[in-house]
């Protein structure tokens, strides 16, 4: 049994351990590809760990793709511990796929470096933030047993909601990141972040109401907003 030297192995107890923020962090630090290998569905040594992993990895992929990275760089594949040939196949395939994509931030990715790195960092903060984690954490529960009112949701419905949140969170965290650098007006933010101004305004007002931003000063009749340090 022989295979490519391209891969480095990091041991985890169960794919359920894969934290979306950790996966994003790997790409922020320039990793070209991340392959998560775990048990076959229904044969997880930790019962349901790989189902949880699948939800989180799919969400992370969607977020990173929205940030501009080629989603093929993150992959989840399954095998049993007895299938050494399959292991070789998975790592060989994946290595070939990543070689095809080339280094991170190259032609295969929608956004080039160094911009991509900034965007991935924003994606990482969003993936470490409460909203995406909460919704993806509730996903299995909502699909299986439903919410408190016994309303069961379809996977499709939750994925759609998650899709919407990815867009919102990217916008919100981009705004927060930009304002952490320096105070700015809605118009400036809209231009810099390429989000339509009316939407930027709504995000800014929403963030202000929740105490993330406050008005810093008014310049030429235009309010400038600044970031408010958060505790905890």
């Amino acid at each position: 049994m022989q295979y490519t030297t391209d891969i480095r192995v990091i041991r985890i107890m169960c794919t359920g351990r894969m934290d979306p923020a950790v996966m994003a962090d790997a790409f922020v630090h320039g990793l070209d590809g991340l392959l998560v290998l775990g048990c076959l569905f229904g044969e997880c040594h930790y019962v349901s760990g790989n189902f949880n992993a699948r939800h989180k990895i799919n969400m992370t992929k969607e977020m990173l793709a929205y940030a501009g990275m080629n989603p093929g760089r993150l992959s989840f594949r399954n095998l049993s511990s007895a299938e050494s040939e399959l292991f070789v196949k998975h790592v060989t395939d994946f290595s070939a796929e990543i070689r095809e994509l080339g280094p991170l931030g190259g032609e295969a990715d929608r956004v080039p470096l160094p911009k991509l790195r900034e965007k991935l960092e924003i994606a990482r903060t969003a993936l470490a933030g409460p909203k995406l984690r909460w919704v993806v954490g509730k996903k299995p529960v909502f699909i299986d047993t439903g919410n408190k009112y016994q309303e069961v949701f379809t996977e499709h419905e939750i994925n759609r909601t998650l899709g919407g949140i990815v867009v919102d969170e990217m916008a919100t965290h981009s705004i927060l990141a930009a304002l952490q650098n320096k105070p700015a007006s809605v118009k400036e933010l809209a231009k810099e972040l390429e989000i339509p101004a009316p939407e930027t305004l709504k995000y800014v007002l929403g963030l202000k109401r929740r105490g993330f931003l406050e008005m810093e000063s008014v310049k030429d009749h235009t309010p400038l907003y600044k970031y408010v340090e958060q505790e905890g």
Binding site: G164, K202, L205, G206
Partner: peptide, 23 residues
């Protein structure tokens, strides 16, 4: 405590603020 607002997945226009913002 306001924790729920952070995680509530449903995003909608705030009709009580003339839809100026999202809540």
């Amino acid at each position: 405590c306001g924790e729920c607002i952070k995680v509530c997945p449903i995003h909608m226009y705030d009709d009580y603020n003339e839809s100026l913002e999202w809540r």
